[in-house]
Design a protein around this nucleic acid. Structure first.
Lengths: 210, 210
DNA sequence: AACAAATTTAATCATTTGATTAAATTATTT
DNA sequence: AAATAATTTAATCAAATGATTAAATTTGTT
């Protein structure tokens, strides 16, 4: 008897545990997660977690690095794309990023919460600084600000990175509050986020042009 | 011998424990906090925590409610002030709120993280919905949007509540990332936030007027 | 001062939790 | 098929953790 029942191969124990760990860590965070929760979610014996991953800490490190990639990759891919103008970067970033966040709504609070504990452990491996410096985005913003003149021309470009990420990410972090505020269910909330795909680029360009 | 050494009265054990609990819960979150950490921080015997507060859970509930008040009160006070125009609310809110957040930079990630677990437990007691409905803020936004005409006139006012809170709060939530990104220490980061006290109102008014 | 009430302490309990072990089972190689 | 290696399981360990207890100490009252 082969293990293949249909055309889809069932993942092995190691993969099952990692997927279960992603699910539980993302939902509850490191401190509130019990290794038994992960084993149960995977439908496997608890000892297999240590057999394949040595420790809860080590398994978390692997999961965290993957989630950090997911959180930063689509961001950096757009910001570093030398083909794109500033407006092109804004449009593409907002659309792609909100798409990712709609798919993984728990990702931002997980990342921010775990980075708030142990900030240096993970961020130094990510070299976010170097990537953004080399992307040319900061120069593009500064150039645009100079052109528009006015009050904003002397403002640090980092403010606009803060603005574009804030307007995309924060609604997902404060989702419980905004849902309580509006009375919207999951679908209604997603509808609002879909609207923001077109609204946020408009607002950001207004900020840059003032 | 009186307990009074100088003109300042030392707080009693109950108060010491609550203050220690605020400090530790805020820094580490509920799940990562050990009751022994709180007792040690207070410089008191562990049993006193249960003597005065019955349980970790109960102590947390008290701390969380106080921190929710701190997080929402200055917000609601401004938004509900019938004396203020829309522009007045924007200016006052941003200035006051960033002042609070500079003073308590860990407050937002704590609130968001704990609300993400148990969303209903705390939010239903806060009746955020009713307060915002009665504040008149949503009507003021809608009125302004109509006046300016254009694309934004049909957009839901909640988007602008999201925007103003996002631009103020998110930088504190993503502080480790922005510090890694800029290489700024605590003081440099605060300087950026001080700049945002004047910048955010400008940007928000641009959004409303487009 | 004598007594009662409130507070504080050290010791201890019962569970929970991350991890390990030795035996059992399954898969792979010879 | 036999032997070897890899995987899985149930049982167990040691440490951590929230909570309790009984005794000791301090404070307040008569």
């Amino acid at each position: 008897m082969s293990k293949i029942t249909s055309s889809i191969q069932e993942p092995g124990a190691e993969e099952k545990i990692k997927e279960a760990a992603k699910k539980v860590f993302l939902a509850k965070g490191y401190a509130a997660t019990r290794t038994r929760d992960i084993a149960e979610e995977a439908g496997l014996n608890l000892a297999l977690l240590n057999y394949y991953f040595r420790s809860k800490e080590n398994l978390f490190h692997i999961v965290m690095m993957e989630k950090l990639q997911l959180f930063f990759n689509s961001m950096i891919a757009v910001f570093s794309n030398k083909e794109l103008s500033l407006d092109g970067k804004i449009d593409t970033f907002v659309d792609r990023y909100i798409t990712v966040l709609v798919q993984y709504p728990d990702l931002p609070i997980f990342i921010m919460s775990e980075l708030h504990q142990r900030p240096q452990e993970f961020l130094k491996e990510m070299k976010v600084r170097e990537v953004i410096q080399q992307s040319g985005l900061l120069q593009q913003i500064q150039e645009r600000l100079k052109l528009s003149g006015g009050v904003m021309s002397t403002v640090h470009p980092i403010h606009f990175i803060m603005n574009i990420t804030s307007l995309c990410v924060f609604p997902f972090i404060a989702k419980p509050i905004f849902q309580s505020l509006t009375g919207l269910e999951k679908e209604g909330f997603i509808a609002l986020m879909e609207q923001r795909k077109v609204l946020v680029p408009i607002w950001i360009k207004q900020m840059l042009g003032g």
